[in-house]
Protein backbone atom coordinates (compact mmCIF):
# COMPACT_ATOMS: atom_id res chain seq x y z
CA UNK A 1 0.00 0.00 0.00
CA UNK A 2 1.20 3.42 -0.82
CA UNK A 3 1.18 5.74 2.19
CA UNK A 4 -0.33 8.38 -0.10
CA UNK A 5 -3.64 6.77 0.77
CA UNK A 6 -3.36 8.52 4.13
CA UNK A 7 -3.53 11.77 2.18
CA UNK A 8 -6.67 10.67 0.39
CA UNK A 9 -8.16 9.75 3.73
CA UNK A 10 -7.19 13.17 5.10
CA UNK A 11 -8.80 14.86 2.09
CA UNK A 12 -11.95 12.83 2.58
CA UNK A 13 -12.15 13.60 6.28
CA UNK A 14 -11.52 17.27 5.61
CA UNK A 15 -14.30 17.39 3.05
CA UNK A 16 -16.71 15.61 5.36
CA UNK A 17 -15.83 18.08 8.12
CA UNK A 18 -16.27 21.07 5.83
CA UNK A 19 -19.60 19.82 4.56
CA UNK A 20 -20.68 19.24 8.13
CA UNK A 21 -19.82 22.82 9.00
CA UNK A 22 -22.12 23.92 6.21
CA UNK A 23 -24.96 21.58 6.98
CA UNK A 24 -25.29 21.55 10.75
CA UNK A 25 -26.94 24.31 12.70
CA UNK A 26 -25.92 23.32 16.20
CA UNK A 27 -22.89 25.41 17.00
CA UNK A 28 -21.29 22.61 19.02
CA UNK A 29 -21.57 20.14 16.20
CA UNK A 30 -20.26 22.76 13.78
CA UNK A 31 -17.34 23.14 16.10
CA UNK A 32 -16.77 19.39 16.19
CA UNK A 33 -16.70 19.39 12.41
CA UNK A 34 -14.04 22.10 12.52
CA UNK A 35 -12.04 19.86 14.84
CA UNK A 36 -12.48 17.05 12.36
CA UNK A 37 -11.04 19.26 9.64
CA UNK A 38 -8.09 20.15 11.87
CA UNK A 39 -7.46 16.49 12.57
CA UNK A 40 -7.56 15.70 8.87
CA UNK A 41 -4.90 18.35 8.37
CA UNK A 42 -2.82 16.84 11.14
CA UNK A 43 -3.01 13.45 9.47
CA UNK A 44 -1.78 15.04 6.26
CA UNK A 45 1.08 16.72 8.11
CA UNK A 46 2.13 13.50 9.76
CA UNK A 47 2.02 11.72 6.42
CA UNK A 48 4.12 14.45 4.85
CA UNK A 49 6.59 14.11 7.69
CA UNK A 50 6.96 10.44 6.86
CA UNK A 51 7.16 11.21 3.18
CA UNK A 52 10.03 13.66 3.55
CA UNK A 53 11.81 11.84 6.33
CA UNK A 54 12.02 14.76 8.73
CA UNK A 55 10.08 15.71 11.79
CA UNK A 56 9.02 19.22 10.83
CA UNK A 57 5.59 18.01 9.77
CA UNK A 58 5.05 16.46 13.15
CA UNK A 59 6.12 19.66 14.85
CA UNK A 60 3.57 21.59 12.82
CA UNK A 61 0.91 19.02 13.70
CA UNK A 62 1.87 19.46 17.31
CA UNK A 63 1.46 23.20 17.09
CA UNK A 64 -1.86 22.67 15.35
CA UNK A 65 -3.00 20.65 18.31
CA UNK A 66 -2.00 23.39 20.69
CA UNK A 67 -3.74 26.02 18.66
CA UNK A 68 -6.78 23.75 18.33
CA UNK A 69 -6.88 23.40 22.09
CA UNK A 70 -6.78 27.17 22.53
CA UNK A 71 -9.40 27.57 19.84
CA UNK A 72 -11.69 25.02 21.44
CA UNK A 73 -11.44 26.78 24.78
CA UNK A 74 -12.34 30.16 23.38
CA UNK A 75 -14.89 28.80 20.93
CA UNK A 76 -16.74 26.82 23.53
CA UNK A 77 -16.70 29.83 25.83
CA UNK A 78 -18.29 31.84 23.07
CA UNK A 79 -20.89 29.16 22.51
CA UNK A 80 -21.71 29.09 26.20
CA UNK A 81 -22.11 32.83 26.46
CA UNK A 82 -24.13 32.84 23.22
CA UNK A 83 -26.38 30.19 24.66
CA UNK A 84 -26.80 32.18 27.82
CA UNK A 85 -27.93 35.26 25.99
CA UNK A 86 -30.04 33.59 23.33
CA UNK A 87 -31.08 30.30 24.89
CA UNK A 88 -30.07 28.61 21.68
CA UNK A 89 -26.97 27.07 20.18
CA UNK A 90 -28.16 27.39 16.61
CA UNK A 91 -25.87 29.35 14.32
CA UNK A 92 -28.84 30.44 12.26
CA UNK A 93 -30.30 32.37 15.12
CA UNK A 94 -27.38 34.75 15.07
CA UNK A 95 -28.33 36.02 11.63
CA UNK A 96 -27.94 39.64 12.63
CA UNK A 97 -25.85 40.39 9.57
CA UNK A 98 -28.98 40.49 7.48
CA UNK A 99 -30.37 43.91 6.87
Amino acid sequence: MNPVNYLYLAALLFTIGATGVLIRRNAIVVFMCVELMLNACNLAFVTFSRMHGNLDGQVIAFFTMVVAAAEVVVGLAIIVSLFRSRHSASVDDASLMKL
Binding site: Y6, N42, V46, R50, Q58, A61, F62
Partner: peptide
Protein backbone atom coordinates in the same frame (compact mmCIF):
# COMPACT_ATOMS: atom_id res chain seq x y z
CA UNK B 1 -2.68 6.21 12.18
CA UNK B 2 -0.22 8.66 13.71
CA UNK B 3 1.46 5.78 15.45
CA UNK B 4 1.53 3.82 12.21
CA UNK B 5 3.12 6.80 10.50
CA UNK B 6 5.92 6.92 13.05
CA UNK B 7 4.57 9.87 14.98
CA UNK B 8 4.55 8.14 18.33
CA UNK B 9 4.52 11.26 20.43
CA UNK B 10 1.67 12.78 18.47
CA UNK B 11 -0.30 9.59 18.60
CA UNK B 12 -0.16 9.60 22.37
CA UNK B 13 -0.84 13.32 22.56
CA UNK B 14 -3.80 12.86 20.26
Amino acid sequence: FYLANGAYFLGVVQ
